[in-house]
Amino acid sequence: MNTREGQAQALFRSYSRNSNAALLAPDSADIDALTGVFADHFVGAGPAGVMGGTKDSSFPDILRQGFRNYRAIGGTRFEIIALDVEMLDDANAMVRADWEFDYLRSHDGAKGTIAFRNIYFVNFAGGEAKIFAWITPDEAQAMKDHGLI
């Protein structure tokens, strides 16, 4: 594993750890660490379309609210369980991250896990690994399929 691959692995281990902590306690989460994994500008794509964003002053609140929402629907664990880093060139990598989202449904006490793969694009400008793009599956449909929304 080269240095850049190691940086990407470390970035996603931190992202996973901090995402799970934010799910468990959104109001006391290390939001700076979570926002720190993203580039100043980013793009996301999924079944609903493509969106672009800027890591501005509203970004931490958006992340915090997202974790509150996951918790409100019964989320109990949110972690990356497997990573695959593919260097595209000296400055960019594609990372396939397999996530698991465990839940406890409030209306019937049923437990379950939603497994999904996100694909991320990471840039190493300035010597730091930062996520600048991602591709996600239909999260809302998965939540509906599991009776969470």
Rank of each mutant, 00 (worst) to 15 (best):
M1K: 14
N2K: 11
N2F: 08
R4Q: 15
R4G: 05
E5Q: 15
G6M: 15
G6V: 13
A8V: 09
A10H: 12
L11D: 02
L11A: 03
R13N: 13
R13H: 15
S14V: 10
S14C: 06
S16L: 01
S16R: 00
R17N: 09
N18I: 06
S19G: 10
A22G: 09
L23T: 04
L24Q: 11
L24I: 08
L24K: 08
A25V: 08
A25E: 13
A25G: 13
D27Y: 14
A29D: 00
A29I: 01
D30Q: 06
D30L: 02
D30G: 02
D30H: 05
A33M: 07
L34C: 04
L34F: 00
L34D: 00
G36F: 03
V37I: 12
A39K: 02
A39N: 03
F42C: 02
G46F: 05
G46K: 03
P47E: 02
P47M: 01
P47Q: 01
A48Q: 14
A48I: 12
V50N: 04
V50I: 14
V50M: 11
G52E: 11
G52T: 14
T54K: 08
T54V: 14
K55M: 10
D56Y: 02
S57L: 09
S58F: 09
F59W: 09
F59Q: 04
P60E: 04
D61N: 14
L63T: 05
F67S: 02
F67G: 00
R68F: 06
N69S: 12
A72K: 05
I73F: 07
G74E: 01
G75C: 02
T76H: 00
R77K: 11
F78N: 03
E79K: 09
I81S: 03
A82G: 12
L83N: 13
L83A: 12
M87L: 15
M87H: 06
L88G: 10
D89G: 10
D89R: 08
D89V: 12
D90T: 08
D90P: 01
D90N: 10
A91Y: 15
A91V: 09
A91Q: 15
N92P: 05
N92T: 11
N92V: 04
D98L: 14
D98F: 11
D98W: 07
W99M: 04
E100I: 12
F101S: 05
Y103V: 08
L104Y: 00
R105S: 03
R105K: 13
R105P: 00
H107Q: 13
D108F: 15
D108V: 11
D108K: 12
A110C: 10
T113A: 02
I114V: 06
I114D: 02
I114C: 01
R117K: 12
R117L: 09
N118P: 10
N118C: 03
N118I: 07
Y120I: 00
Y120Q: 00
Y120R: 00
V122A: 01
A125I: 05
E128C: 11
E128P: 00
E128Y: 14
A129F: 06
K130T: 04
K130D: 07
K130N: 08
I131H: 07
I131E: 06
A133L: 08
W134P: 01
T136L: 12
P137F: 02
A140V: 09
Q141G: 09
Q141M: 08
M143V: 10
K144L: 10
H146L: 07
I149M: 15
